[in-house]
Each structure stands twice: as structure tokens, then as C-alpha cells.
């Protein structure tokens, strides 16, 4: 390892990891209430980023319909995500109730393909580098730190904003699940559908709500990522990094998703400080190596419940 690069890597890793954690939260949300593992979360995220971009009027070809400031555009995109979440649950996932796992996984995969195609028709396949951001992408904080490379740690200001927003979102979600009526009924539904029904919870409505909320969370993650890198179709692949985070933290654990996300972010950054070029290049697969290790050593994850079926 290049030790001088490590402090920088740790800071960047934690900041990146928080965004991954937020994305992972969206998947865990749906899984907790309906036991559906949503492979299309990445595409919802990409959709959210593109919708925000569109509402912000950034296409700049003269005939944009909306020209909202970023905050308003994000709110509008949240509304769209809410509707799309409800719609997906109603049209695609409701008929799959009681179907085997493979069918449900394939349904979300098919959904992902569909969303990808639709997004590329409506918004085009070119990456949008002009995604509105509150401050310029190049602005950085410079923190003097004796052991770091050239005595300084550089942090992108946008990354810090993303971190703060992600943490705020996570706190909001945890509060929602701990104290709000809907959140509590979601947890009850996750525990046992029939019991939840018997105390008067409208279970299909809860499923729909959890998809809607997951859509909003995905949009938030998408906006944060798009602020950093610009909106593009490849945003959807980010969620593939969130999957290892989810398994690492435990499939049903909200704090687990956050910790897993940070761990994956750290792993990616730390790997790229290695001296060997082969290891340095492996930052894109580091999450998956981590995933395989977790699956073999501790399949239920760090915070997961131990009711995973062992063989």
C-alpha cells in the first residue's frame, strides 16, 4: 500500500460509501416489506436523475418545457418517482404475488430493461454532463494533514454535500420506520403478512407505498450521483455496487445497509491505494470479492437476522 494515499482514500471512501448506503437503503426498503429483491433499483435511480435533469430544463435545445431551479426539479422528480413506484407495484409486481423467487427476480430484471429502453428513447443515449449542481464540480476543500500525500487531503465540496444529504435521508428513513404510523405498519407487514392484515393494515397499499418510497430514495441517490458525475445511462450500474453492500450489512437491516455501503466505498478506495497495479485496477470488482467472502463466511451479513435457510 501507498500509505500516504490512505487518509485521502478513507475520507473519500466514507463519503462515497454514504451515497452507496442510501441507494442500498432503497433496495432494503422494498425487501423488508414485500420480500422482493429489486434489481431494477439502479434503473429507477437513473430514471430519477434523468427526470430531474429534464425538469431543470437542462436540455438547452430551446424547447424545454420546464426550467425549474434544482430544488424544485428534485421535488417534481420525487413526485414522478412516487407515481412510478406505485405504478410498478400495481402493474408488474402485484400479479407476481406467490410466484417463485426466480419469476420475481426476472420480473424486476425485465422492468430494468424496459426502463433503460424508455429512458434512452425519451432522454437520449448521450451522457448529460450539464446536470445542474449547486456549486461547481471542481471546488474542493483542502484539509492539512501531515501524513497525507503532499500534506493535504482534498475533498470535493459536492461530495460533502452528497454525504450530508445521504446521512440526512438515512436519518429520515430510520425515524420514519421507528415512529411513523405507516413505517410501523410497513415493519409489521414485513414481519407477517397475514398478521398485519388481521390488525387492519392494507397490505397491498403498504407494498405500493414501499415501492413509492423506494422510488423516491432512488431518485435522491440518482440526483446525488448525477451531481458528481453527470446523468448517463451507466448510472444504473452503480446499484450493482450497492448489492454487495446490502448483503454485507444483512438483507433486512437498515443500519446494515448504511454500514455495508460505507464498507464497500472504503474497500473500493483502499484497493486503489495499493502499490501493485493489478490490485489497484481491481477497485471495480472489489465489492464483489467482498461479496463472495461474505457469502462464504457469514451469509446472513453483519446485522442480518439469522433466519436465512442454511443448507
Amino acid at each position: 500500500m501507498n500509505w500516504v494515499l490512505v487518509p485521502q482514500a478513507i475520507i473519500t471512501g466514507i463519503l462515497n460509501g454514504s451515497v452507496i448506503g442510501l441507494i442500498a437503503l432503497g433496495v432494503v426498503l422494498i425487501y423488508k416489506s414485500s420480500e422482493i429483491f429489486n434489481f431494477s433499483q439502479g434503473h429507477l435511480l437513473m430514471l430519477g436523475a434523468f427526470v430531474t435533469w429534464w425538469f431543470a430544463g437542462a436540455s438547452e435545445d430551446g424547447n424545454e418545457i420546464f426550467n425549474f431551479p434544482l430544488g424544485l426539479a428534485v421535488l417534481a422528480a420525487f413526485l414522478v418517482a412516487l407515481l412510478i413506484g406505485f405504478l410498478i407495484e400495481r402493474i408488474a409486481l402485484r400479479p407476481m404475488t406467490g410466484q417463485p423467487l426466480l419469476s420475481i427476480i426476472l420480473m424486476t430484471l425485465g422492468l430494468a430493461q424496459l426502463i433503460e429502453g424508455l429512458v434512452s428513447i425519451f432522454f437520449g443515449i448521450q451522457p448529460k454532463s450539464n446536470f445542474p449542481a449547486p456549486i461547481a464540480r471542481t471546488e474542493t476543500f483542502k484539509i492539512p494533514f501531515a501524513f497525507a500525500f503532499q500534506g493535504n487531503i482534498f475533498i470535493k465540496k459536492l461530495l460533502v454535500i452528497a454525504f450530508l444529504v445521504a446521512v440526512f435521508g438515512m436519518i429520515l428513513i430510520v425515524i420514519f420506520f421507528k415512529f411513523s404510523r405507516v413505517g410501523l405498519s410497513m415493519r409489521a407487514t414485513a414481519e407477517d403478512h397475514e398478521l398485519a392484515r388481521s390488525i387492519g393494515i392494507n397490505v397491498p397499499r403498504i407494498f405500493g407505498l414501499s415501492w413509492a418510497i423506494a422510488g423516491i430514495v432512488a431518485t435522491a441517490g440518482g440526483v446525488l450521483l448525477a451531481m458528481l458525475t453527470g446523468a448517463s445511462l451507466s448510472l444504473s450500474t452503480v446499484v450493482l455496487v450497492a448489492f454487495p453492500a446490502i448483503l454485507l450489512g444483512g438483507l433486512e437491516s437498515l443500519p446494515g445497509a448504511i454500514v455495508g455501503g460505507i464498507a464497500v466505498g472504503l474497500a473500493q478506495e483502499l484497493v486503489s491505494t495499493a502499490k501493485l497495479i493489478e490490485i489497484r485496477n481491481s477497485s471495480e470488482i472489489a465489492p464483489y470479492v467482498l461479496l463472495l467472502i461474505v457469502l462464504i463466511i457469514r451469509p446472513e451479513g453483519l446485522f442480518g437476522q439469522k433466519r436465512i435457510e442454511r443448507i
Partner: peptide, 28 residues
């Protein structure tokens, strides 16, 4: 090999890892 310990969805994730690790290995 992970099918020794896990099944269903978890196994799908293990094969997903294959889908990323193998192309990476051929490249690097």
C-alpha cells in the same frame, strides 16, 4: 461453491459476482 452455504437469492448474487469478476480477469 457458495451453494454450499446459501441458496435462492443469495446464490444469484454469487453468480452475479462471477459476471463481474470473470470479465475483469480477462481484461487485467
Amino acid at each position: 461453491l457458495p451453494s454450499l452455504r446459501v441458496k435462492g437469492f443469495y446464490l444469484a448474487m454469487a453468480t452475479l459476482a462471477a459476471q463481474f469478476i470473470i470479465p475483469w480477469l480477462t481484461k487485467h
